Simulated assay, not measured.
Amino acid sequence: MTEPTEMQAVVCHAWGTPDTLTVETQPLPQPGKGEVRLRVRAAGVNFPDTLIIQGKYQFKPPLPFTPGSEVAGEVEALGEGVERVQVGDRVIAFLNVGGYATHAVAQAAQLIPMPPELSFEQAAAFVLASGTSYHALVDRAQLQAGETLLVLGASGGVGLAAIQIGKALGARVIAAASRDDKLEICRQNGADETINYASEDLRERVKTLTDGKGPNVIYDPVGGDYAEPAFRSIAWGGRYLVVGFAAGDIPRLPLNLPLLKGASLVGVFWGEFARRDPRGNARNLGTMLEWMKEGRMTLHVSGRYSLEQAGQALRDMEERNVTGKVVIVP
């Protein structure tokens, strides 16, 4: 049988909206030294993807490029010097770009063997959201059993992961989101209490749910208008995790607030952590995979899109019509 020489890929030619993305036929890439070529079976869709195509993310790839940073698939070809994987291996890969395609090239040293318990779609939804949330709650906040965790934007991919990780660590979890249907999904994923911050006063509801003590840890991937009222509700000695700014606005906090609460503002940059401490990141991911085997953690994949629907997937992400994770299936 003749080997394929072409692939299909979503391409961003200029900074812009999801509507400007195109699907094109390209030459099949050949892996270089230390690289492998993957047959992509599923690619995770993440909020940073919506920023990268607009040129608004801290990482700006040269144009044109194919978005998508996390994939699951099979090793199809080996570059020079690759010995740790074989053709046919099922793996998870985290890339800078290139995931929204039928094929992708990845560094062999950074591949994660795909657990047999996971489907390709689950595997593609695992690394970024779960890795971010575990790094945030364990490495950065040192969340302890018996503490209270408040998760903002709780129905998204990182939010649901934070709920499940918080529960696995023995915390009491309060989930905050903008719609009742999203909060129901949070409860299904383990949240003990919920807050609809579109219809309820966030500070007052937090005060009621914590008997005036406030949450010990606040997980914030949203930013925007809810950051300051959330921080004002934090417990003495609390840790406020700055994860991202899905609301679009980067909030500014009066610096007397951390002083008055003896509280900490803690930055979370999982991608840089994974680059600087790959062993620590692998250890974190391994812990969560064990939790999945034990039934203490699951992966919530709520939507599947084709390559031609990649723009719609990113629009749904921008407009917050997504719960948990969604994936592109080439």
Rank of each mutant, 00 (worst) to 15 (best):
G44Y: 01
K207D: 12
P254L: 00
L285F: 08
E117T: 13
R276A: 12
Q8G: 04
V329H: 08
E24T: 11
A191V: 10
G153R: 04
G271C: 05
V326A: 04
G44R: 02
H13R: 15
I234M: 14
D277N: 14
T210F: 02
P221R: 01
P215T: 12
Q164T: 02
V36M: 11
Q188E: 15
L128D: 04
G190Q: 10
Y100V: 07
F273K: 07
T210Q: 05
I218W: 00
L257I: 14
T50F: 09
N256F: 14
I53H: 05
G55P: 10
V268P: 08
L257G: 03
C12I: 13
A106E: 03
I52H: 03
M288F: 00
L137F: 08
L38Y: 11
L259A: 13
V151F: 01
T323N: 03
E319P: 08
L38M: 13
G88I: 04
Q54W: 02
A136R: 02
N46L: 06
G295T: 15
L255S: 13
A42V: 09
G79R: 04
Q164F: 03
P215H: 08
Q309W: 00
A124Y: 05
K167C: 04
L128Y: 02
E318Q: 15
A136P: 07
E6A: 11
A274Q: 15
S155W: 01
V138H: 13
R283S: 10
Y305T: 06
R252Q: 15
A274V: 01
P229F: 00
D220W: 10
V45L: 09
S302P: 03
Q122L: 07
L51P: 06
K261I: 07
I328R: 10
Y219S: 00
G55D: 13
T148I: 12
I92E: 11
P27A: 08
D49Y: 04
Y226H: 10
E272N: 13
V327T: 08
H13T: 12
V243T: 01
P254G: 11
G244A: 11
Q30N: 12
V268S: 10
I185M: 08
R252D: 07
A274K: 15
I112D: 09
V11K: 09
P31Q: 08
Y305P: 00
A141K: 10
S130I: 11
G79W: 06
A282K: 14
M288S: 11
E184W: 00
G271K: 02
G170I: 13
L299Y: 00
Y197P: 06
P330Y: 07
V222E: 03
I52P: 08
N189P: 01
A125Q: 05
Q309T: 02
D316T: 02
R39Y: 02
P278C: 04
K207P: 01
L253M: 15
H13E: 13
F65N: 09
Y197K: 10
S302N: 05
A77W: 01
G32Y: 12
T17P: 06
R276T: 09
P330E: 05
G166S: 05
Q164N: 09
V326E: 01
P4N: 02
S264R: 11
G146V: 11
F245L: 12
S119G: 14
